[in-house]
């Protein structure tokens, strides 16, 4: 059952702190696919909701999956610490970005440049990886109802709850 409480303020702060993001969906035929996310912010219009950015040309198979059943899995990882969390939602939908979404791309990219520099990834590489013309940006809106710790280690995959919202 959906549980809006799963997205605690602490967890929202973590997943919106400009982390490395991958968004996955399945095609209804048992094949999951994925795309790199380009930013995440709390949805001001939906309690417990998130708005995830992606580049439409890269996301096509994922968008088809979302259109089919609305289910997504999103993994967020902090490159410097490997702290990783996966959220799942069943109500995902794809929207055009608003101005606040579009405005997120630049600070997101800048932060990832800094974060990935810590692990030796050159800036031009990160900027190429995250490049997206504004007119190609799309937003996946979703209200996560499950959260799993995925920091590498024996506890990876453990379900997290409101009492233990972070990996």
């Amino acid at each position: 059952m959906p549980s809006p409480a799963i997205l605690t303020p602490e967890l929202v702060r973590f997943v919106t702190s400009h982390l490395s993001i991958h968004i996955a969906a399945s095609d209804g035929g048992g094949q999951a696919t994925l795309v790199r996310g380009l930013g995440c912010r709390a949805d001001p219009a939906v309690a417990g909701g998130l708005r995830l950015l992606a580049a439409r040309p890269q996301a096509e198979p994922v968008l088809r999956g979302i259109a089919a059943d609305g289910r997504v899995a999103v993994v967020f990882s902090e490159p410097e610490t490997h702290r990783t969390v996966q959220l799942k939602a069943r109500d995902a939908r794809v929207l055009a970005p608003d101005d606040d979404d579009t405005a997120l791309l630049a600070p997101y990219t800048d932060t990832l440049v800094t974060r990935l520099a810590c692990v030796g990834t050159p800036e031009p590489f990160v900027r190429a990886l995250l490049a997206c013309p504004p007119d190609e940006l799309i937003v996946v809106c979703a209200t996560p109802d499950e959260v799993f710790g995925q920091t590498p280690g024996p506890l990876a995959g453990e379900r997290l709850d409101a009492a233990h919202p972070l990996p």
Binding site: I23, A24, A25, S26, G30, A32, Q150
Partner: peptide
């Protein structure tokens, strides 16, 4: 993808 169609993503 789980048998019920739920996607899962990891590094």
């Amino acid at each position: 993808c789980a048998p019920d169609g739920t996607p899962n993503v990891t590094y």
